[in-house]
Simulated assay, not measured.
Amino acid sequence: MNNTVPAVYQGLWRRRLLTTPILRDDTTLVFWLQTAAWHADLRIPADRPDFSGCVTLSDCSRAQLLALLGQEGFAGVTLIDGDTCEWQRCVDYRPIGLRDLGRMVFSSTADAIEEYGVEAEYTERWERVEEGEGSVDVCWSTDARAQILWLRAGRRFMRVRDRPLADAESRKYWYRLHAGMASDDDLRRLADCEISFGEIAGQAGYILHSTLPWLEGQSLTLPIEMLALQTCSERK
């Protein structure tokens, strides 16, 4: 497999349609940001409830916590082999334990992709989003809790922070959830994972969509490394 993702993949994509043998979904909000190696993906259902009045997970009711855990998203390294794309997940909001491989068919103008499942039966249609001038790249930062992955495509960015759980702990809480035995605290531990999508204006970033809804509309300080990134055409 190729360790560098071809330029035609790089940038920001929005999913417009998912079809499976039992489902047609054109309402879930889905963004995929792809760099030369790393990707991030955010999926928010259209029926996610209102979170007005919530500013932390502690403010969420059980019903709200369960709704959060109906979201999806992931981030990791992308590998290309011919027309097959594999998204290797280093962070996974709702892990399913399966590989994620798609056969990719680009439109003649490379502004749309039909993705066909390789190990699962599905089709997704992706459309390229105009992201504005700027770099397509990735950097890391660290806060008091965790390492944070930042991806940028022009004026758009994604920020990813994994839940602060060891793999064994995570599996334990997911098992409790699927078995109907999870406490509210268990649900909060699982929902403590941020995948945010936003826009860059000057030296600041503004969150437009997030797995933590109360972050939406907030501004944040971008890493110096992200602001210093050069445009793709300037990188050697």
Rank of each mutant, 00 (worst) to 15 (best):
L190E: 04
T84P: 12
V160H: 07
R89H: 15
G205M: 03
E130S: 14
C232W: 12
L215I: 09
A179C: 06
A179Q: 12
A37L: 08
N2H: 15
T20A: 09
R188A: 04
P213D: 02
L29Y: 12
Q71M: 10
E234A: 05
R14I: 11
Y175M: 06
D185T: 09
P49H: 03
C232P: 11
A204R: 15
R24W: 12
S52T: 11
E133V: 03
D186C: 02
L187W: 03
R94T: 11
R62E: 15
G154W: 08
T56Q: 05
R189Y: 11
D162Y: 00
E115Y: 13
T123S: 13
Q71F: 05
G202F: 08
R43H: 01
L79T: 14
D81Q: 13
G82H: 01
I148G: 00
V55A: 12
E199C: 10
L98N: 15
L57Y: 09
R94H: 14
A146D: 13
T142S: 11
V118G: 10
T142M: 07
E133W: 05
R189T: 04
N3Q: 13
R156E: 06
S170G: 10
D184T: 10
R48C: 11
P6A: 12
C139E: 12
Y122R: 03
L69R: 01
R16G: 14
G154S: 02
E194T: 06
E194M: 06
L68S: 09
R156C: 10
F74M: 10
A110E: 14
D184P: 08
N3A: 11
E86T: 12
S141D: 13
E130A: 13
H209S: 09
M181E: 15
L18D: 14
Q203F: 00
G97T: 09
Q218F: 06
